[in-house]
Design a protein around this nucleic acid. Sequence first.
DNA 1: AAGACGGGGAA
DNA 2: TTCCCAGTCTT
Length: 347
Amino acid sequence: MNFSAQLIAWYQHNKRDLPWRKTTDAYIIWLSEIILQQTRVEQGMPYFYRFAERYPTVTDFAAASEDEVLRLWQGLGYYSRGRNMLKTAKLVQEQYGGNFPTAYNDLIKLKGIGEYTAAAISSFSANEAKAVVDGNVYRVLARYFGIDEPINSPKGKKLFQKLADEVLDVSQPALHNQAMMEFGAMLCKPKKPACGICPVRTGCEAFKTNATSSLPVKLKKIKVKQRFFNYLLIFDEKRVLMKKRGNSDIWANMYDLPLIETDELLEPMQVLALPEMKIFGESNPLKDNSGVIKHVLTHQHLFIRFLILDKFPGEMQKDWFYADINDLDKLAMPKTIFIFIKDIFNF
DNA sequence: AAGACGGGGAA
DNA sequence: TTCCCAGTCTT
């Protein structure tokens, strides 16, 4: 048995029962693949059910609003995935009459679909012979073939894609791709791979040379930026002053509160003395403050201070509006903001 | 070629 | 803490 056949044999006895494996509907597979980008299966699962139920077909999805999609996506992160899905759903509705494409060359042109996702959808839905290369595949190939070329260098990416194409079983690409990824996720794990029960260890270069812990090689770590957010919470009876975010920073197009970002951590009184505070009215007294919440993201650490102001005699700004607290569930907000407001109003 | 983009689970 | 997850897009 060759490498692929061994992994497929392993897969058929050890695979998890996942909902998106029960269908060849390209739309449903697309839904699952986008949700699972850079996301663990357990984390994405509830979102998959939520979207599949709310939008049973791509036609239903195409009729949604961006606000609604982002609200459903709230808490999953990488929100551009949700925004791109809506664009793609609309295009599929118009250009393909609501029939989700299954050909790699069509899929690769769609927003939010890159090489991995196009290979996944085309192989799973139509058995097109395209090899998927995701984090699991990089790891399995790097270890089995003992390759120390960095997986995130342009050279490495080409090398691993070529290798993945070579080991692909073109007679059953869907099964092969599923097997490679499941094997990487369940057995050939990043930490403490289960080499003791591995069916291909006798052919595995990393196992033979005791190098599993040093493969795959990945270039440089990103450096984390620190940012200081001072949010102003201003409410009037059952209404909160809110704003829609721009489209160039984190949490694009989502909703949050009036914000003053500073270069360093300031005390509440120092924030109130800032020139930017003028639009909130002269000598607007501080009613309360929450202390500092540290919100950890992959690329930045946010130090968030919520300042509750007593009143708002200032000027309304563009993109500001009052939201009824009963409508807050409809607005897509960063999780940390949502939880804070929820807490204040006790709902 | 390098950066940006979330949030959570595991060690 | 650090790593990394069924990656893609922008600059």
